[in-house]
Design a protein around this nucleic acid. Structure first.
Length: 595
DNA sequence: GCCGTTTTCGGCCCGACTGTTTTCAGTCG
């Protein structure tokens, strides 16, 4: 389970405020359908604030500037100002009097909506999860109208699964699971085509459930669904109909949704189930304005119900006068506007990558020696022209950090391997620690000799580390900032960083910023990548591999870059080493002129 | 409560499945 954001020093009000608005939406959801548009509004405001990179107080100079933010109007702007001034929102305090707040979490349990939750409260005086469990145990629930045996059984299961239902998988794990299920689905006779949809197709950093879309003739569907829900990996069947089935997996209680469609509606279904929800709503609204209707079966003329498109996503976007939008961009972050103008970025692809900028060998905490790594990569990644060996510096004692003399020895080993390979393939690098005062833990005369120096923070995770990172940027021999936000997804929140300041410093000093592709890091994260690209920051993608199987992480590093709107031009290691060298020399020259 | 290249008022995405009903409300994605 991924914990709620911790508010460390130097961290923003955003997380707190987003949580409050999310709770307010839940309150209004509980209070009844007459508030349904308020629910949408507060949920929207919550999402907007959670996605901001800067603290909300930056925007909160006055109501009018807050009003410019998407989904924030006069009323919510006032509440933001009130929160910043007093630490409270009166309307929320009042709502908490009206709504049994402990009950709100019940609505997060599968099968519990507002109506059920409210009924339980009013008829059985249930105030929290414990009360509900007691009511079920004592048989009180069965006395209520509308609560049959099946429904109560489902409620019990939902309660049991509550914790797991809240967990999200890392993208890497979800991709593996998803591809395995996809293969099993494709082996069922009658499936003519199938692919993964949902947030997995959009390559979000964490995945809640797995969506599959498949083409199958109507006459085969009953049999296919029956086969699908009885696959060995199925723990429980949540739903199964003519066109749709939902299962829970044995291994990890992950939900998998399958949708069977006709070939002429495949594109519409894929579009719909790929999402995001916000992107879909945007497209549907667009269709509506044109007098059309978009659903998972196609685009239809609203008046005549005549089908206008649906077989492929391409024809639907084309009908809308838009370029086809890559799934990674479908987050309603301006992609629709650019698609209308046919100005979408030409996104980076893995095949243009020319090297990997961070990895570890047996010299520090990696599993293989340098020659083994080099030969493996030349075989499995033939399009790479270089790799940068970046073992740890002395401060990382646990990770077997190298002393100065060790690095000198390693230089000789790299020379030996390159000579054997008859190619200057392995570059001499290091992952240097940024100490708490912003200095580095290796001397300048050694740093100067590396081909590439990545500087990272490995301590002091609760502080604001902006100044520390900027002083690393200011160092003439630092080429890159490694895993810049320092988070471990689901385990450790990012430390505080003023991203505007850091990105400015990176551009000013000619320092690159890393996208670390380790599955639980994905750091820099996608929305910050987008912000960095907008500022003209040069980025790198690194696997930070510690064993041979981890070099494959590059693909999801590329996914993060794509979600951050990167083209080939934004990623330094999609260029030849000559260009990397040029980038590096520019910084040194620039520093010399300055000093 | 938000929003606007038809609108400052009157809209706000849309359909499948379940459980329990005898025609549908609730929930989900």
């Amino acid at each position: 389970m991924i914990p709620a954001p911790l508010l460390g020093s130097g961290e923003s009000h955003n997380a707190k405020l987003a949580a409050i608005f999310h709770q307010m939406a839940a309150c209004y959801r509980y209070l009844g359908t007459e508030h349904r548009f308020r629910v949408i509004a507060y949920d929207g405001a919550s999402r907007t604030i959670a996605a901001l990179n800067d603290d909300i107080s930056v925007y909160a100079t006055d109501i009018a500037s807050l009003d410019k933010l998407k989904g924030i109007g006069e009323s919510i702007a006032e509440k933001i100002m009130e929160f910043l001034a007093t630490g409270k929102i009166k309307t929320f305090e009042k709502l908490k009097q009206e709504v049994p707040v402990e009950l709100l979490e019940l609505m997060d349990i599968n099968g519990f909506g507002p109506a059920t939750t409210r009924l339980l409260h009013e008829k059985l005086l249930i105030n929290n999860r414990d009360d509900l469990v007691a009511a079920i145990e004592s048989g009180k629930l069965a006395s209520l109208k509308g609560f049959g045996a099946k429904r109560i059984e489902n409620m019990k299961r939902g309660l049991k699964l509550f914790k797991e239902a809240h967990s999200r998988m890392l993208l890497w794990d979800a991709l593996k699971t998803g591809e395995a299920i996809l293969q099993q689905l494709l082996s069922i006779p009658g499936i003519r085509k199938a692919e993964l949809a949902g947030s997995l197709r959009r390559r979000k950093e964490t995945i809640g459930d797995i969506d599959l879309i498949a083409i199958a003739d109507k006459k085969n569907r009953k049999r296919i669904v029956a086969r699908f829900i009885s696959l060995p990996l199925v723990d429980r069947v949540l739903a199964s109909g003519e066109t749709k089935a939902s299962i829970l997996l044995k291994d990890n209680s992950v939900q998998v949704d399958l949708r069977l469609v006709n070939d002429y509606e495949y594109g519409a279904a894929l579009l719909y189930f790929t999402g995001s929800k916000e992107h879909n709503i945007r497209l549907r609204t667009w269709a509506r304005e044109k007098g059309w209707k978009l659903n998972e079966y196609g685009v239809f003329d609203a008046a005549s119900d005549k089908m206008l498109a649906g077989a492929t996503e391409e024809e639907i976007y084309k009908l809308f006068g838009m370029s086809w939008i890559p799934p990674e961009l479908r987050e309603e972050r301006g992609e629709v506007e650019l698609a209308i103008k046919h100005e979408l970025p030409d996104l980076l692809t893995e095949s243009v990558m020319r090297g990997d900028m961070q990895m570890h060998s047996t010299w520090s905490d990696g599993a293989e020696d340098i020659e083994t790594i080099a030969r493996f990569i030349q075989k499995d990644y033939p399009y790479y022209e270089y790799i940068v060996m970046t073992d740890h510096s002395p401060s990382e004692r646990i990770a077997g950090g190298l002393q100065v003399e060790d690095f000198i020895k390693q230089f000789a080993e790299i020379d030996r391997v390159n000579k054997k390979l008859k190619l200057d393939f392995v570059k001499k690098g290091a992952e240097v620690d940024i100490l708490s005062d912003g200095s580095l833990d290796l001397p300048d005369d050694l740093l100067e000799r590396f081909d590439w120096v990545t500087a990272s923070i490995h301590s002091g995770f609760t502080k604001d580390n902006t100044e520390r990172l900027i002083s690393a940027c200011n160092h003439p021999f630092v080429n890159c900032i490694g895993h810049p936000c320092g988070r471990l997804i689901g385990k450790r929140e990012p430390y505080g960083v003023d991203w505007d300041k850091l990105f400015d410093a990176a551009v000013r000093t000619g320092t690159a910023i890393e996208i670390n592709a380790q599955p639980n890091r994905l750091d820099l994260k996608d929305d910050l990548v987008k912000a960095a690209v907008a500022k003209g920051v040069m980025l790198t993608i690194s696997t930070d591999a510690h064993s041979l199987d981890q070099y494959a992480f590059m693909s999801q590093g590329v996914s993060v870059a794509r979600r951050g709107w990167c083209t080939h031009e934004n990623i330094l290691n999609s260029y030849s080493w000559k260009q990397v060298e040029k980038f590096r020399q520019q910084k040194r020259k620039h520093r010399k002129v300055e000093s």
